[in-house]
Design a protein around this nucleic acid. Structure first.
Lengths: 225, 225
DNA sequence: GCAAAAGTGTTGTAGGTACACCCATGC
DNA sequence: GCATGGGTGTACCTACAACACTTTTGC
């Protein structure tokens, strides 16, 4: 008789132009690793799909509003949980951190955003999961327009540019980048202007036209950056 | 108390220049879906890693010699197995079908290669898994040299060309293709010549230099086709 | 000598990269 | 008026796509 438990874990990415990429972690309320920081997640219920389990856990533990969710990889080495055998199906999610406030409840003492450059030690094999998520995010940014899921509904062009530069960790030529993005034609000018709180020329606020993107995609076009 | 079982399933791809892409299926010995064709796979043991479980199951059920193995995706909808809740971690594998003979034993009545164009109805949600494997294989062919894992140790250039043409389902310009592949410099000429059994000019037999590829890759080069 | 398979170069073009100055705003 | 941030065009060059005839072999 098999006795393996099934869990889900999520790497929740947020982004703020001022700060860069952040990851949502919870402080564990129960052993093992009680009091340590870990990825949000937990056991799957008997009659619940994997996707539903992630969404439930995220809501319970952190209160985030998920913008994009994708399965990442499954981890099942026999010793990854020191007490029981647990196979974890990991996910990664993209959210807009300032579109809601964190509200930890069951299972978690605390939920908090950490800058990707400044993470605490993580419980279990979560460092490996996080690294895999990071690789996937970087790769996917190159061939699907998921960056928009991290930005506000409307955003100035410079936010998009900063996002790519910071997540891919390389310099971006503004003119070439803009040329490319504009050639796709799925950015809508809302007509409004950005409000800067310092000096500087305000740029127009843009919107990502998801519908148009899916039309383009369906007619055999492919995003690449 | 959670009662979910954990299984692994594998989509095993083979390739023969004469026939094209094939998939290895087994005929199930036990219910559910007794007597139906399905992907090889089975329950993970309590103290066994996921990778080890796939390798064991493939050996037990089919006797294949695996050349390349990669985790694909995990499927966990509550109703995917009509009797118990089973979460399946799926894999895909690349093998050389003529490097060994199939030897089904436990759990399987029979193991057999099917042409990808001519598959029987599959048990469970295996059609979905297969489709996902197919997408991944096609995508991966474009940015990693995994095609070689499907060819014999030494092969004529035309086999490689046919492989790409058939798996990606499109015409390939021989001259452009060759130019590109040769520019990478990881094909070794063994000095021997192909033996055709009809008329035609025999080409040289080549070998994929894996070590050189990994060197190139490590020094920041990227395969693309 | 003919049918089958493999080998071989050139040219046009699209897209990527590199690069520097002007404009709007806040203080 | 100056500091800050946003906006804009051109020239070079590389890389991909298109394309047809010759060579070697078996029968």
């Amino acid at each position: 008789m098999q006795s393996i438990k099934v869990a889900v874990d999520a790497v929740v990415f947020g982004y703020l132009p001022a700060e860069g990429l952040t990851v949502l972690l919870i402080k564990r309320k129960e052993p093992p690793f009680k009091g340590k920081w870990a990825l949000p997640g937990g056991l799957v219920k008997d009659k619940e799909s994997l996707d539903a389990a992630v969404e439930r856990e995220l809501k319970e533990e952190t209160g985030v509003q998920i913008n994009y969710l994708e399965q990442l990889y499954s981890f099942g080495s026999p010793k990854r949980d020191p007490r029981n055998r647990v196979v974890s199906i990991s996910y990664y999610a993209l959210v807009r951190p300032d579109a809601f406030t964190l509200a930890p409840s069951t299972d978690a003492l605390e939920a908090k955003w950490f800058n990707i450059e400044d993470l605490p030690r993580l419980a279990f094999d979560h460092p490996i999961i996080l690294e895999k998520a990071m690789e996937r995010l970087q790769a996917k940014l190159g061939y699907e327009p998921i960056g928009f899921e991290l930005l506000d509904e409307v955003f100035p062009f410079s936010d998009l540019e900063k996002l790519y530069a910071s997540l891919l960790d390389k310099k971006i030529d503004r003119r070439n980048f803009k040329k490319k993005i504009n050639s796709y034609g799925f950015l809508i000018d809302t007509g409004k202007k950005q409000k800067l709180d310092g000096p500087g020329r305000p740029g127009p606020l843009l919107k990502f036209d998801k519908k148009k993107y899916f039309q383009l995609k369906a007619s055999g076009f492919s995003f690449e950056i």
